[in-house]
Design a binder for these strands. Structure first.
Lengths: 155, 155
DNA sequence: AGTCTTGAAACAACATAAGTTACATGATGG
DNA sequence: CCATCATGTAACTTATGTTGTTTCAAGACT
């Protein structure tokens, strides 16, 4: 399966929005992400429901941040995009009758759950403000690089 | 994406093979896994290449263990099935020009790599003999349960 | 020779994320 | 109010990768 990029995309958008004057339309965001406005609306809907962004219709409408980046963690956004399955590897059967398979599933589950716990725990400790700070540092090192130029996005 | 079940299936098969007299044919194994003999051959090919199993053609042929379960770890089998991608979540772009996206990817990669490291490290510490022991314990607790009966498999 | 079995290529089926089309709804501004 | 802009949402299509299937070649045993 091709992997799920919703989390990555939403982080990307949210940080840009933080540096963006006024509302950003789905179309503008879609251009930045190299995707479609409908995909943007679909994915952002989850963030809106949790209050991380708000949307407005009509002239001057679009998307705005619902709270500062310092109050959003990777875990928050991961949950807002629907908590997609973390792992691409898993058991062949969820409720096997075979005791061997049960033992195999138990061994794998234990390892996967431990790894997922670590991952989400780490997600919970990183705020989007942390990532924005890292962006600033990269910006300072590479002042010539400008992304999404002409699309209405700084940097 | 539907997740990859090759690791799980191979662990299941290997433990059964350990308790199985003689060689097991692809067809027998396929029946046990509720799949197709060709899928079995395809997946087992990776294990054969690493020496974890051997195969023989003709009458009385089939698959045999190439070494004791105590000398195979989950990591070994994971590698033998081709080290499939562990995570179903990932970046939207691998080499982004945008510095924001680079910062996002860096934050995510760090977390994912740490989790993968933990997972594989744990895989490396669990042998198939450990799982077989757990199976024996489950067997002792549920003596009535019999799996794959009639397909030539014990238990 | 005939049967059993693996080896491997080629193709079909299936699931899911992502992309697209189409239209309804609501807000702004003349 | 009416045209325009923007989101909201359903339905459909596309793309990708795992899994399943068909088919045939080749080796091994009786």
């Amino acid at each position: 399966m091709r992997h799920d990029s919703r989390l990555s995309r939403m982080l990307h958008v949210l940080i840009h929005m933080d540096r963006h004057e006024g509302a950003a339309t789905s179309e503008t965001i879609a251009a930045m992400l190299n995707t479609n406005p409908v995909v943007v609306r679909r994915t952002m809907a989850g963030l809106r429901q949790k209050g991380y962004v708000s949307s407005e219709k009509g002239h001057g409408g679009g998307w705005r941040l619902g709270r500062p980046l310092s109050e959003m963690t990777l875990l928050d956004i991961y949950e807002a995009v629907g908590e997609p399955a973390v792992f691409a590897v898993g058991p062949a059967c969820d409720q096997p009758a075979c005791l061997v398979e049960q033992a195999v599933n138990a061994a794998l589950s234990e390892a996967f759950e431990e790894a997922e716990k670590l991952l989400l725990s780490r997600f919970g400790k990183v705020t989007l403000a942390d990532i924005a700070r890292d962006f600033d540092a990269r910006m300072a090192r590479h002042p010539a690089l400008v992304a999404h130029a002409g699309a209405g996005w700084h940097a």
